[in-house]
């Protein structure tokens, strides 16, 4: 089934995110009256499917038919849950996206810690339809909801020494079974998951700080409660379940770079002319389609981002 637009879910059917927030603060208020010391662990996460209102962006949209929400929420690479495509959907209930804070530090004028609710309300939400190209050779078209990461970064005022941004995902093997070590884990990633962008990439208007998709808050298996989306890079560059954003002066080593330096570079821009050492990147299978299609340079965003890499050898800086 091809769905052209995010469905309009009647507000009467599901609790609106604002309503959910109001009701929650009411409940917390009541609880505060009843029990004097109230811990933040009393905060409940918005139930799956809670609507997240957003204005549809005319500028950042695509003609491509959307991938179904079912496929977007059942076919995931999220190694923290496990390496199989169905592990994230199966184990998503273990992740608790509330309470949640994001630590901002490093080379920044205003280091601080944001509560997720505050971060959500910092800037108006936009819905943007982006292509997502996985390094494994499949792709999707997803209506994300969020605001430009640049808006947040400008408010934080990185210092003149800041040249890279590091994103750290949650480390907690109780919520992320893929982080558990067992007798049989011969091969595993270095946790927590760390990703990075050059500051100008992070400031690019396409880079989205993302809180939802398909009109709803992010499902846990898609990186709740907050992730980035960098549509011209392979999917693994878009860090999920972010707990820390740090500004640094030197290029950092990302998780996949540490795991296999010859296979995953820092840039990892979608590039049909530079193969992964073990498979070709010339074509991809769009989920929901039968025949492979040609992969586009920078995942079809060359016009917007090619200038970032002017003069660079993309074969060496893969």
């Amino acid at each position: 089934m091809l769905i052209r637009h995010a469905p309009n879910i009647a507000p009467s059917e599901i609790t609106d995110y604002q309503l959910y927030l109001n009701r929650r603060s009411f409940l917390i208020g009541m609880a505060a009256l009843a029990l004097t010391p109230i811990t933040s662990t009393a905060v409940a996460a918005p139930p799956a499917g809670t609507p997240l209102p957003a204005r549809r962006s005319e500028q950042f949209t695509l003609e491509d038919p959307l991938t179904s929400i079912e496929n977007i929420t059942t076919y995931n690479n999220f190694w923290e849950f496990g390496p199989n495509k169905d592990d994230p959907a199966r184990l998503a209930h273990l992740l608790k996206p509330r309470p949640w804070t994001v630590q901002i530090d490093g080379l920044v004028a205003r280091p601080r810690r944001y509560d997720i609710e505050e971060l959500l309300r910092l800037f108006p939400m936009e819905e943007r339809v982006y292509r997502l190209r996985c390094v494994e050779g499949w792709s999707m078209v997803i209506p994300w909801i969020g605001y430009p990461l640049a808006s947040l970064i400008k408010r934080l005022e990185p210092t003149s020494k800041a040249r890279f941004v590091e994103f750290t995902s949650l480390l907690d093997s109780a919520q992320f079974p893929g982080q558990r070590k067992s007798l049989f884990s011969v091969s595993s990633l270095d946790w927590p998951y760390v990703e990075g962008l050059r500051l100008d990439e992070a400031l690019h208007p396409l880079t989205l700080l993302t809180f939802g998709l398909y009109g709803q808050v992010l499902p846990n298996q898609d990186g709740a409660p907050v992730r980035i989306v960098v549509p011209w890079k392979y999917g693994f560059k878009s860090a999920k379940a972010i707990v820390r954003i740090r500004f640094v002066s030197e290029q950092l080593k990302t998780t996949w770079e540490k795991a296999a330096p010859s296979e995953y570079g820092f840039y990892s821009n979608v590039n049909p002319t530079v193969d992964h050492p073990r498979w070709s990147q010339a074509t991809e299978r769009r989920i929901g389609e039968f025949r492979r299609r040609k992969t586009l340079m920078f995942n079809g965003y060359a016009e917007q981002v090619a200038a970032l890499y002017a003069g660079m050898d993309l074969r060496r800086n893969f």
Binding site: P83, E136, G178, S187, L189, A259, A260, R278
Partner: peptide, 13 residues
């Protein structure tokens, strides 16, 4: 062994 990504343990089994 050669087709999987790091973190997949089945081939070792």
């Amino acid at each position: 062994l050669w087709l999987v990504k790091k973190g997949v343990n089945d081939p070792y089994l």
